[in-house]
Amino acid sequence: MNHELTAHESMLLGKALEGALDEAEKREFEVLLERRPELREEFHSIKAVQEVTMAMNFKKPPEETWDRYWGGVYARLERGIAWTLISIGAAVVIAFAGYHAVLAFLEDTASPLLLKIAVAALVLGGAILLVSVVREKLTLRKTDKYREVIR
């Protein structure tokens, strides 16, 4: 059962657990435990769990892990450049092919007028959507206080 704690109480208990209380805080801590015996019990059970976690340790990874580590990061940097180039190339090719396909369709006299209007509406709608998203991203970038945090 967890009892309600104020921010100051949790800081006091935290400092006590980590052995970081000064003299004044030690007195305050003792008064707190006198006043609230349920916290004394909680404090001691948390300390017991802390002793267990402090006795744990991770197995060290093999030494080759560190020898190969930078190589793994470097490969990711290269792949990042490759993906950027592929994305740019693909965007240009798709835009070019799309433009010519739409143009050819609109110039085709055999296609019904209604279908041509529908395709033109689709293209126009897509373009407006793209401009809107890009504009929103750019505005957000200027005002986003978390822009330095890479997600």
Partner: peptide, 12 residues
Amino acid sequence: MSRLYLARRRLR
């Protein structure tokens, strides 16, 4: 230390 205490509390 306060955050650690609250985390330890949840661990308990």
